[in-house]
């Protein structure tokens, strides 16, 4: 019985390898063609994709290129990169005032989804390996630790929430904000005796936040035709309610990272829920 099961598994593994090999060699044998050859002395920048990201607003980039043709690199210092203005520009392509956020969540949103998935899988492996470990490693916390943990916990959580809610306006975002909240949870694990029995909802919160991220992407797929499109209006740059789904995605990422890292620290401290 076991032997036939092994044979079936080996057959399917062999089939998978053959299919992947067909794809691989098929891609190698494709004719390469000439591709896009750029003239280095007099480059035609309108053929490059990167110029659209440098100018940040795709709709006006065509006019810009028509004016400046190929003199961009020679007159680089005289050219202003764009005419975006904080608090005044409306309906920019990516309305977030923080340019790092507009790259990370808007233009490269799919990469961020993969990054969040990597974090989820690593915390999953941590839980699988360490869940059986139920020993206690800490002595009774002293008065200073208990008082400090109780006093500082709400302020640290408030700061973390501020960092990821304002992720599209100021430096910061989902990953640092979630980590700050997780360090608040660490403080309570050190300071209170039975805190880890109260931390039971982390897995559910984490799953809901991840589903929110993927669901926002799917809504963009059905309304505008591509995954993780910014389907909401981007609003005035610099206000709290602006930049469409970028702010919502960063809030979801912040909640997800906070729940994941809190449960990971709890597992490392020794044992999950009993």
């Amino acid at each position: 019985m076991k032997n036939t099961q092994g044979m079936v598994n080996a057959f399917f593994a062999f089939l998978l390898v053959v299919i992947l090999g067909i794809f691989f060699f098929n891609a190698i044998n494709q004719p390469l063609g000439n591709g896009l050859v750029l003239n280095k002395d007099n480059p035609d920048l309108s053929k490059r994709v990167s110029i659209h990201y440098i100018l940040k607003n795709v709709h006006n980039a065509e006019d810009y290129l028509a004016q400046h043709k190929s003199s961009y690199f020679r007159n680089r210092d005289k050219v202003k990169s764009s005419n975006l203005e904080f608090g005044k520009t409306k309906n920019a392509e990516s309305g977030s005032a923080n340019e790092v956020t507009s790259i990370v969540v808007n233009y490269r949103g799919f990469d961020t989804l993969g990054e969040v998935t990597v974090l989820f899988i690593s915390i999953l492996g941590l839980g699988m390996l360490l869940h059986e470990n139920k020993k206690k490693y800490w002595a009774k916390p002293s008065l200073i630790v208990r008082t400090g943990a109780n006093f500082l916990f709400p302020f640290i959580v408030l700061f973390g929430v501020y960092v990821f809610v304002h992720g599209h306006l100021t430096p910061g975002g989902g990953f640092p904000g979630g980590t700050i909240i997780a360090s608040a949870a660490l403080l309570l694990i050190l300071g209170l005796k039975d805190f880890k029995n109260k931390l039971t909802m982390t897995k559910i919160i984490e799953s809901l936040a991840g589903l929110t991220f993927a669901g926002l992407g799917l809504v963009g797929l059905f309304t505008n035709g591509s995954f993780l499109t910014n389907f909401l209006p981007s609003g005035t740059m610099g206000l709290l309610v602006s930049s469409g789904i970028t702010a919502l995605i960063y809030i979801a990422v912040g909640i997800k990272v906070a729940a994941e890292l809190s449960s990971g620290i709890m597992e490392m401290n020794g044992g999950g829920e009993e």
Binding site: N98, P171, P176, T179, S183, L186, L261, I265, N269
Partner: peptide, 24 residues
């Protein structure tokens, strides 16, 4: 500043705690 906030939260905060757990 984005990298600075992340480095301060993860490098100085969480990874130190994880090393302390490992030492325990």
């Amino acid at each position: 500043p984005d990298v600075a906030i992340t480095e301060a939260a993860i490098g100085a905060g969480l990874s130190t705690a994880i090393f302390v757990f490992a030492i325990k």
